[in-house]
Amino acid sequence: MAVSDGIRQRAATVQRPGLRRARRRNAIAGYAFLAPSLFGVACFLVLPVLVVIWLSFQSWDLISPARWVGLDNYRSVLTDGVFANSLLVTLVFVVIVIPVQTVLGLFAATLLTRGLPGSGVLRTLYVLPWICAPLALGVVWKWIFAPTGGALNAIIGHRVEWLSEPQLALPAVCAVVIWTNVGYVTLFFMAGLLNIPAYLLEAGRLDGAGPAALFWHVKLPLLRPTMFFVLVTSVISTFQIFDQVYALTGGGPQRRTDVVAARIYYEAFESFSFGRAAVMAVILLVILVAITLAQQLYFQRRITYEMD
């Protein structure tokens, strides 16, 4: 302590300009160390965001010169109903997918952490769909759902037009996405559950808590950091679902599966309306940032990272 006090005293007597210079040097060194990642953030994040915002005020078909149209794109996107439909579809999609996959993931994780025989194999099987390319899975599921010659209709022995019946298409796509994601969610919940110290569970049991009480009052609260991570990442990724929709339905029938990311793609690369696509991307960005902030605020007060 005495040594460091001495240093501090000596530092205090050093002239201020010198200190400032030292600080500046430190700052420069700091930024120098940050430079590679700052470069990445600037080039691949900030710049594209700015370009997309700029594009949202242009009329551009990719080959003829971009033309400034002010708020025209915003007006057409917000009034023609196509984007509103996509937002609604995406919202319904998220509302179906997130709860189901979270509950299923939590349930599977609880079972898998019991150390029952075969858990290792099951664990691998669960994660497999998540590892596979979504587009490839989409193609496989398209065959499973095919009205003529499809596997599912062959099994149930009845002709159902899963992907072209307006009422069935969205649930069918949801099912495929949930099936894909459950393994991933399970993985995180398993890690979270295994991190819960045994003594806390023991203490609960000693106090007379049954399995249900133990789950609700000990495990679930301690899983909050995991829950936060899982919810934030899966809400964001579900809002941006694209591959499966692209492969399964192409947004149809009657735009019932026309989720926002797919709509952005079709506006940009089918209709070549880059201005409108950019507007949609900007709106999606704002929505996702808002959701993330809300989740952040909600969990901030309730998360305990410390467990020992």
Partner: peptide, 18 residues
């Protein structure tokens, strides 16, 4: 960080998808 993550995912997702 949260905003950055959200923004990154949107941009990479929406623009990059194409």
């Amino acid at each position: 960080i949260a905003i950055t993550v959200a923004a990154a995912v949107v941009i990479v997702g929406a623009v990059g998808a194409g």
